[in-house]
């Protein structure tokens, strides 16, 4: 038995750990460091209809136990991603989750329609939560009716299951999740970054050229845990959890909150080997915690019977 294998809509994963969108490019850089076949899946960088340069630099700023980024969805555009990046990734036996972004609903629909036809794309991740672009992105992720409408339109054209990436920059994330579920989403991914800002003490200028950026890293983990805990109890579609994961223990915590798989983002920048390391460490941690299979951990913090008793050495 593969104790880490997880089945989700469209995704048959050998393990539940995948790099998060925007933190792994299209895999080429990390492929120089390790065999990408070890990964459960890969969430590729957000793809838009046309190529985008993104925002001016500086695009990153460090914060206590975290970082702000304002890349601005830089990507080579749908055509190049379909002609160059996805075929290159097809050499690996790893399902691809294509992150889809746009400025208008039509953009999203167009990208989804085409990219979902590529054989190694097993699911889409609708990026309605990027805080760093002026049009689109987060605008679609903060009004439930708009998010639901977009989900519906993309579902109509997509050949593969559609996951919607939720923004934490909302008053009521449960309401948002329910609206998206009702619109037909197959799953949720959460959370995207939190809108933040830093100002240079010497110059009084914002450090990021974009002024504001998305906060990620360990600093946001408790927020992600809380939101997954709330949302997983309110919806019946699966959740891929993300937000500051750095270790196998973090993965288990996300599962306990209600996630069925996880994505690792910012930690890839600090330790490029973090994904394979976490995957290698998970079985021993399951032993220590007394689980046969990782799926037993999902929702453990709120399911009947309460949390498991820690019985490690």
């Amino acid at each position: 038995m593969n104790r880490l294998a997880v089945q989700l809509p469209g995704l048959s994963l050998k393990n539940p750990v995948m790099p998060a969108s925007g933190c792994f490019g299209f895999g080429r850089e990390y492929a120089k460091l390790y065999d990408l076949n070890v990964l459960g899946a890969i969430m590729i960088k957000a793809t838009t209809l046309e190529p985008r340069f993104g925002n001016p630099t500086p695009r990153v700023a460090e914060t206590p136990s975290g970082m702000l980024n304002a890349i601005g969805l830089q990507n080579p555009g749908l055509e190049k991603v379909m002609e160059e990046e996805l075929p290159w990734l097809a050499q690996y036996d790893v399902p691809i989750i294509a992150n889809v972004a746009g400025s208008t609903m039509e953009d999203y629909v167009e990208v989804a329609k085409h990219i979902s036809k590529v054989p190694n794309v097993h699911a889409l991740e609708l990026n309605i939560s990027c805080p760093n672009v002026k049009k689109g992105g987060i605008a679609f992720g903060t009004v439930p009716e708009v998010a639901a409408e977009l989900t519906k339109l993309v579902k109509e054209v997509s050949e593969v299951p559609v996951y919607v990436k939720l923004s934490p920059n909302v008053t009521n994330i449960v309401e948002m999740a329910k609206a998206i579920e009702a619109a037909g989403a197959d799953g949720l991914t959460m959370i995207n970054t939190l809108l933040g800002m830093r100002i240079d003490v010497k110059t009084a200028e914002p450090i990021l050229a974009n002024r504001t950026g998305g906060l990620s890293g360990p600093a946001i983990k408790p927020i992600a845990i809380r939101m997954i805990y709330e949302v997983s109890q309110a919806v019946s579609i699966p959740i891929i959890g993300m937000g500051g994961i750095q270790s196998a223990e973090d993965v288990i915590e996300f599962f306990y909150a209600g996630a069925s798989a996880v994505a690792v983002g910012t930690a890839n920048f600090i330790d490029p080997f973090v994904c394979p390391n976490i995957i290698a460490e998970l079985p021993a941690l399951l032993d220590e915690l007394g689980f046969d299979h990782i799926s037993e951990c999902t929702g453990r913090s709120w399911k009947k019977g309460g949390p498991t008793v820690y019985c490690g050495a």
């Binding site: 792994f24 850089e29 993104g54 920048f269």
Partner: peptide, 13 residues
Amino acid sequence: RMGCGIGACFACV
């Protein structure tokens, strides 16, 4: 200013 240093994060373009 860099993030990953290996070309994956697009911070230093």
